[in-house]
Nucleic acid binder design. Sequence first.
DNA 1: ATAAGGCTTCCAGTCACGGGAGGGTCAAGG
DNA 2: CCTTGACCCTCCCGTGACTGGAAGCCTTAT
Lengths: 130, 130
Amino acid sequence: MNIGDAAAATGLPAKTIRYYEEIGLVRPLRSDNSYRNFRESDVHKLKFLGRARALGFGIEDCRVLLALYDDDHRESGQVKAMAEEHLKRIDAKIADLQAMRATLGTLVRACAGDHRPDCPILEDLAADTH
Amino acid sequence: MNIGDAAAATGLPAKTIRYYEEIGLVRPLRSDNSYRNFRESDVHKLKFLGRARALGFGIEDCRVLLALYDDDHRESGQVKAMAEEHLKRIDAKIADLQAMRATLGTLVRACAGDHRPDCPILEDLAADTH
DNA sequence: ATAAGGCTTCCAGTCACGGGAGGGTCAAGG
DNA sequence: CCTTGACCCTCCCGTGACTGGAAGCCTTAT
């Protein structure tokens, strides 16, 4: 299976797959023409990676998750701990964004958005208080 | 005012201030010893930048916002349009994160997190369905 | 005179790729 | 047999917004 087929099968761009190989997340075989040759197991790993990334896990987390997946003696507590850690990060980001959203939303509502220069948004950004 | 004082006054790291100068967001004077010399107006700009960044505006947006702030003939509609555009991006990010959070939260709740290897989280990541 | 701390520039690294150059390979059609 | 077009390869640079560190100059206090 060439990289194009692997890309189609996994939904990942070929560039991303090459990158994953470069950093050692997958190790496809090579054909005589030096083309990468993906087995089903490689495709499976790539799909795993795609889903883990879609959940927001970083690359190094993905590496660990893959290793745990391959490890028959893993303890589910290890996985859960990682996931909870990641959940915390997500919640923190959401909170940050919601704070921004609240402030910015208020400013937008206060701004007439017309042809005049008066603008509460700029005034807030320039305010000495804060 | 040296860069250290400007940093203290604005809450921005000196490194960041140097970076802002490098990309032309501020243009502090230089003293004879080649130290940067910040006027009050520079500090004011830096504070403006810090607040715009804290609201999540990108650097190029900040550049435009600063220009609008300096422009007596601006129309508040321009600023509002940028802010609304940015609000959309924020909302999109929040939605993405909340989707992640929902999926990951469900998986975490389903995972025993004990010494056994069985793990719904890994099983989901490895699932052929999806 | 020296030591500490602040300032300078420049270079490299971050994260997870994406774009593009320059060139090899393969299958189908004329 | 030749060409065309679609693949594939490697290598290098760019992204955003900084951050860290090295090597060296400047200032102030002891």
